[in-house]
């Protein structure tokens, strides 16, 4: 059932961050993902590019959404997918990340998808295993497939990425989604703004290739894309912002604030949303929201990434 389509080579063994990708790499992955969208919309959604391959999802942080997206992507490509239930495994008994990695590596998987609370965890794993590693989020560092699915969603809505004004709003400090998006959008020539209370911005933000705003009414002026970030519950009550109601009042996206953006601006959120905290329900479910589309693009992008990495693996083996 495959439709062989020739894409230029993807010269990476792992996907650890957007930082290591060139604009060409990003274009390539987005183009491949477009093809995957078509597959996912057919009645028969299964192809066999990854038949016989083993994919292990190793999620140290619970994430129903990202984990099922990776699982579905692998299954649609024909791979055998295994979810490591970290919460009930040896990890809880004190086994280190490296020891777990070595154990899994001995089972000879082809792809390891890892989500971990520590920045750099995916890179550490990649040094120790023989297969491809995909970073599904490492601490506050990177979440490359999220940035790619966001880019694909934007490209489909706006036809391009270059010269668009993209406003990233909320907890940039703790957000790997924000970092990956800032890198990707800058690489593709978009104009990036961040809008957040100053307690939720990292040091040196001015030098990260973004324009900084603390007032959402100013930051959203003329924006083509409004990207909301999730605010973790434990950060709401006094630690970084005084309260939910104050946060929503000044930084939550509602109809009045959205009016400042371009009329055809799209609204995005990586999920899961806190309705009434960073985003009003009317906006989340409104006509400008592309949040559901993001979820669909997530599966497509992950299919594209896994196919591209596996082709590289095969290429390397053939060349060796």
């Amino acid at each position: 059932m495959t439709e062989p389509q020739a894409f230029p080579p993807f010269r990476h063994r792992h996907l650890l961050g957007i930082g290591s990708l060139s604009p060409q790499d990003i274009e390539l992955l987005l183009d491949r993902a477009e093809a995957a969208v078509a597959i996912s919309r057919r009645p028969d959604k299964k192809i066999s590019t990854l038949r016989g391959r083993t994919q292990i999802n190793l999620f140290y942080e619970a994430s129903t959404r990202t984990q099922s997206s990776f699982e579905l992507a692998g299954k649609r490509l024909g791979a055998d997918v295994m979810n490591m239930a970290v919460a009930s495994s040896a990890v809880k008994k004190g086994e280190t990340l490296i020891d777990t990695a070595m154990t899994l590596n001995a089972m000879r998987p082809d792809i390891l998808v890892i989500r971990h609370s520590a920045a750099g965890a995916a890179a550490l794993l990649a040094q120790k295993v023989g297969c491809s590693v995909i970073n599904a989020g490492d601490g506050a560092h990177e979440h490359p497939t999220q940035a790619l699915l966001d880019a694909l969603t934007i490209r489909r809505a706006k036809g391009k990425l270059a010269r668009l004004v993209v406003a990233i709003c909320g907890d940039v400090l703790h957000s790997r989604v924000a970092r990956s998006n800032i890198i990707l959008l800058n690489a593709m020539g978009a104009q990036v703004r961040v809008i957040a209370p100053s307690t939720l911005l990292p040091a040196g933000i001015e030098r990260m290739g973004v324009e900084r705003f603390t007032r959402i009414e100013e930051g959203l002026k003329g924006a083509d894309v409004v990207m909301m970030l999730r605010l973790q519950r434990e950060r709401m009550a006094g630690a970084f912002v005084p309260s939910i109601r104050e946060y929503f009042r000044f930084h939550g996206l509602d109809a009045a604030k959205l009016k400042v953006a371009k009329e055809d601006a799209i609204v995005m959120h990586p999920g899961p949303m806190n309705r009434g905290v960073e985003i009003a329900s009317a906006i989340a479910d409104g006509p400008q929201s592309v949040i559901q589309e993001q979820v669909e693009m997530g599966v497509a992008v992950r299919m594209a990434v896994m196919e591209a990495l596996l082709e590289t693996q095969i290429g390397t083996e053939a060349g060796a």
């Binding site: 930082g19 750099g120 490492d138 506050a140 560092h141 790997r176 970092r179 990292p202 040091a203 040196g204």
Partner: peptide, 15 residues
């Protein structure tokens, strides 16, 4: 060390 480099790495800084 707190600063731009730590921010890119996603590591919490010490001022």
């Amino acid at each position: 060390n707190e600063g731009l480099f730590a921010s890119w790495l996603g590591l919490p800084g010490i001022p």
